[in-house]
């Protein structure tokens, strides 16, 4: 079959690529999609689930595992640290992680250490440990850098924005897989990258990536844009609404 032939040549190409470069251009023996490509944050938004699913090519027979990564937009995350000054805990230091994504989650069919080598994780940049998280500070010692990095991961996890544990990818047959991605109400807006990887014998043998767009929509988006693009007019309108409401309640109050 055409597809088998393709897969075979892809594997050969893959082997070549692996020999010469650690880069992430892999063959596409995984075909995947999302239940929605666009997540609109509307006025009623309180978080949502996105189904990530796909099929792996079973031609070079069984025992492939699947890893799915979800990486949010990188706009930088700032972490602040409190110190005690005169009995009061105040923010005294801060560090900016310029390349930290605003969201991260990983899913796999089995625990990562059982299916893929650490080296391979590193070259394919899979997992939260592989994110290029560095403070823009530059003067921190390695220990301090690690402390801040852990603080970032911990706080992002508390905010439901990072998943440090690896979620479950379910195989529906030896070909079909699926997993549910939960996006909480506080997800940052922007373009997310969903990476699908097939793994065999500790190595990534196939990969596909796909964008997922999260953006404000409807009335909320309109208000946000208005407040940021014409802040003075927005302020005046807010005040007018308040004056009218105050007057209306006075009239209602007087009658009763």
């Amino acid at each position: 079959m055409n597809r088998q032939l393709f897969s075979l040549s892809a594997s050969v190409a893959f082997a070549f690529l692996l020999m010469f470069s650690p880069a992430k251009t892999f063959s596409a023996d995984v075909v995947a999609d999302l239940s929605k490509r666009l997540v609109p944050i509307t006025t009623g938004f309180s978080g949502t689930d996105v189904l990530l699913f796909g099929a792996i090519d079973p031609s070079d027979n069984q025992d492939k595992d699947v890893i799915v990564t979800v990486k949010g937009p990188t706009e930088g995350v700032r972490i602040r640290k409190k110190d005690r000054v005169a009995g009061v805990w105040i923010n005294s230091n801060s560090a900016l992680f310029k390349s930290a994504p605003g969201f991260y989650a990983a899913f796999a069919t089995k625990p990562l250490e059982e299916i893929i080598s650490p080296l391979e994780l590193e070259s394919a940049e899979i997992g939260i440990e592989q994110l290029p998280l560095k403070t823009a500070h530059g003067r921190f010692s390695p220990n301090l850098e690690l402390e801040w990095r852990q603080a970032l991961a911990r706080n992002m996890e508390t905010a439901s924005l990072y998943r440090t544990d690896v979620g479950q990818v379910t195989m529906l047959s030896d070909q079909l897989f699926r997993t549910d991605l939960h996006l909480p109400a506080n997800v940052p807006t922007g373009t997310y990258t969903i990476g699908f990887y097939t793994v065999k014998d500790n190595r990534v043998v196939g990969a596909q990536s796909m964008p997922l767009i999260v953006r404000k929509a409807g009335l909320g988006a309109w208000i946000y844009d208005f407040a940021h693009h014409s802040p003075a007019l927005y302020g005046i309108i807010c005040v007018l609404i308040a004056i009218v409401a105050g007057y209306a309640s006075y009239i209602a109050f007087r009658r009763s």
Binding site: R78, I79, R80, K81, K82, W89, W148, A151, N155, T158
Partner: peptide, 14 residues
């Protein structure tokens, strides 16, 4: 009181 975590995310901070 000492906060449980001395580190925190900066709200809307870039």
């Amino acid at each position: 009181i000492q906060p449980a975590d001395l580190f925190s995310l900066s709200q809307g901070g870039h």
